[in-house]
């Protein structure tokens, strides 16, 4: 069974930093980082009028469906996807097989520049996620919820 994803303060700030920088360097509108299971990890740029939770879930659905298609034709995965719209376009990249980097951009930038900057960001993100995985697997990193009581859980449902 896949281990659960645990995010710590330090890595979280580094990840947010990479997404922020990518938004600026690529001249993109928005950058998202989404777990393959549909949980939003980070968002940077003009996120205010986007439903980020829905975006994360649909991204995961799309990546899962494309991954299924890839396997059908004998590919392991399609690591990059590009969708061109009338105004805005969208680029998705798999990072470390575990998360998806989504960049939304318009004609103030170019696909070439976006691709180039994504490549650099992906390398940095891969390192951070490797560090996270090592930290979660370290001895003593037991369940962070071991200390909650049955009463805590019951309280959540009493009203």
């Amino acid at each position: 069974m896949a281990s659960q994803l645990v995010m710590y303060e330090e890595e979280f700030h580094r990840i947010n930093g990479v997404c922020d920088r990518l938004t600026k360097d690529a001249n993109a509108k928005v950058v998202f980082l989404v777990d393959k299971n549909g949980q939003l990890i980070s968002a940077a740029g003009q996120t205010h009028n986007i439903d980020t939770t829905s975006l994360a879930s649909l991204t995961a659905g799309n990546v899962a469906a494309m991954g299924g298609l890839a396997k059908l034709i004998g590919e392991n995965e399609f690591p990059n996807q590009f969708h061109e719209g009338a105004k805005d376009s969208l680029y998705m990249t798999l990072v470390g097989g575990r998360v998806v980097l989504v960049v939304i951009f318009d004609n103030r930038t170019s696909l070439g520049l976006v691709r180039l900057r994504i490549k650099k960001a992906t390398e940095e993100l891969e390192k951070i996620f490797a560090a996270l995985a090592a930290r979660s697997a370290a001895p003593g990193a037991g369940s962070p919820f071991a200390e909650i009581s049955d009463a805590d859980i019951d309280n959540l449902f009493s009203e």
């Binding site: 994803l5 645990v6 995010m7 303060e9 700030h13 299971n37 949980q39 962070p144």
Partner: peptide, 15 residues
Amino acid sequence: MSFINYSSREINCKI
């Protein structure tokens, strides 16, 4: 596979 974020103090589960 739940997602626990210590930084934003959130826990996400899938049903």
